[in-house]
Design a protein around this nucleic acid. Structure first.
Lengths: 122, 122
DNA sequence: TCAAACTACCTTGCGATACAAGGTACTGAT
DNA sequence: ATCAGTACCTTGTATCGCAAGGTAGTTTGA
């Protein structure tokens, strides 16, 4: 039964963009490092997902970057939020809150109504 | 700037399946009614989204349905959860909780670290 | 010197999803 | 008989995440 895994994966869609903006809001970072940080936070992301996403955000003027030389290995592209990116982050913040409110509302209204029938305060 | 709308829409992916299982967990229902209920909960879903989703869940034995005659209009397909569907719902419940925990963790760790610097309890 | 390992960049092709738009069919009222 | 209302469903398009594969600079070690 692979459907649970599929849907769990689907649940992450869209939130990745939000989480990446969150990470970059604090401080500039580069792709490989972003992947490591998200993995620490239990959000597995791979290169084939992240690079197109960063490019999209850059093309929409939400991010910009500078090349920074590294003492070990090739140079790195450090991304940071533009003012527009900060606005987008604020908007996603609100969207995220509204969405969780909606789902939790549905949940308490529907699940408790069936599972927890001891509540007879009507 | 259409990117916010796009991403808000993305944030809903995967959660629709969860919300629909939530609705059907309480009582059987049919497609048009499910759309109305989700709209009340501020989750806009259209037919072209819902019908394929219901079919997918039925083909995976998460849902089953019966035709029920209506006093007004054509007969309706009333969907309800199978035992497997109940298991899936429980799994999605856990997945949802873990995901919101992860995101909220990232948020308090990163946003407050920058915006709210009065917290100097280190 | 040359090759292997490491790091970091990026692209291509696939499957899954949401949505817009359009189509079928039954019912009841004008 | 025709039109509005309800409920079903399908097709085509765009987007997204991911697996897999590719490029290139740096360091290490034989």
């Amino acid at each position: 039964m692979k459907d649970l895994e599929t849907t769990k994966s689907q649940m992450r869609k869209g939130m990745l963009e939000y989480c990446i903006l969150l990470l970059l809001h604090r401080e500039a970072s580069y792709a490989s490092d972003i992947i490591s940080r998200l993995k620490e936070a239990k959000l597995i992301v791979v290169e084939g997902t992240l690079y197109p996403l960063l490019t999209r955000l850059k093309n929409d003027d939400m991010l910009s970057y500078e090349w920074v030389e590294s003492t070990q290995g090739p140079p790195r592209k450090y991304y940071h939020l533009t003012p527009q990116g900060e606005e987008l982050l604020a908007g996603l913040q609100t969207a995220w809150d509204e969405l969780t409110d909606t789902v939790n509302h549905l949940r308490t209204k529907l699940l408790i109504a069936k599972g927890d029938e001891k509540n007879t305060d009507c």
